[in-house]
Amino acid sequence: MSDAASTATSTSSFGDRIFAQVARAAGVFVLLLLGAIIVSLFLGGLPAFRAFGVGFLTNADWDPVQNVFGAAVPIYGTLITSVLAIVLAVPLAFGCAFYLTELAPNWVRGPIGTAIELLAAVPSIIYGMWGFFIIVPIMGDIVQPFFIDNFGDIPIIGALFQGPPFGTGIFTSALILAVMILPFIAATMRDVFNTVPAVFKESAYGVGCTTWEVMRSIVIPYTRVSVVGGIMLGLGRALGETMAVTFVIGNTNRISTSLFGPGNTIASIVALEFPESPAGSVKLASLLALGFLLFVISFIVLAISRLLLRTKVK
C-alpha cells in the first residue's frame, strides 16, 4: 500500500498541478474574454470618436445622408426607459417580495415564487412580440388617447402627454421593460429578505409590531444595501435589453419630451442599423462606439450592484 501510495503521491501531485493550472487558465480566460470584448468595441468605435470628438456624446443628430452621428438620442432613450422601468417595477417587486416572505401562507410561497421566477425565464423576444401585438394596441387605443386628451393641455405636466397616440414610445417600452425586470428584482429582494435573522423579526413581533412595521423598521433597514444592489441589477438588465424594446420604442432618432413620444435605445439602434452599415464606414464605427458606451454604462451599474449585493451588513 505504501508503494502504491508513494507512486500515487508523485503522479497525483503532477495531476494536481495540471488540474490547478488548467482551472487557473480557465479563470484567466474569462478575464481575457471581457478584456477582448471591451477592446474590440473600443477599437471599432475609435473612428467615430476621432471623427466627432467628445461632441459625439452630446450630439442629438443622426443623419445617415450627411454622415453625421451623435450618441445623445440613444443614450437618452436607454437611460430614460430603464429608469422609468425601475420606477414602475420596484414598488411591484417590493410588494411581491414582501408578500412572499411575510404574508403568504407557507404552502403558497413555493409555487408563487417559482411562478415569478418563470416570468424571468421568458425569452426577451417573446416580451417584444407580446408588447407589440398586445400592449401597443391597448396603449394606442385606450391609454394614450386618455392621457393626451385629458392631461395634454395642462401647462407644464401636459408636455409629457403630447402627440398622436401611436401606441409605441418611451412609456410603452418602459412598461415592457418593467415587466421583464420585475421578477429579477423581486427574486433578489425575496432572497435578501429571507436572510434577516428570525430572532430580529420575532422580537419585533413579540413587542407587538404589525407585519408592516416589521418590514419597515427591521427588514428594510437590515437589507437596505442588498436591496439597492438588487435594484441596480434590474437596472443593468434593462439597459441592455434589445428585443423587448426594438418592437415598441418607435425607432426615431429624436429626443422627445412626451412620455408617448418615440425614441431609440442604444441596443435597438444597433440591432436595426448594424446590418446596413458598410464595413469601415463612420456609421458602423458610430454603432460600435455606442456599443462601447453601453458596455461602460452597464459595467458601472452591474459593478455597483454586485458590490452592494455581496456586502454583508453586520
Binding site: I37, L41, G240, V270, A271, A303
Partner: peptide, 14 residues
C-alpha cells in the same frame, strides 16, 4: 458576474 448580465447584443457584436 458582470458578464452574466452584460447586454447580449454586445456579445454578438464582439
Amino acid at each position: 458576474d458582470v458578464l452574466l448580465s452584460a447586454p447580449s447584443i454586445l456579445i454578438g457584436l464582439f
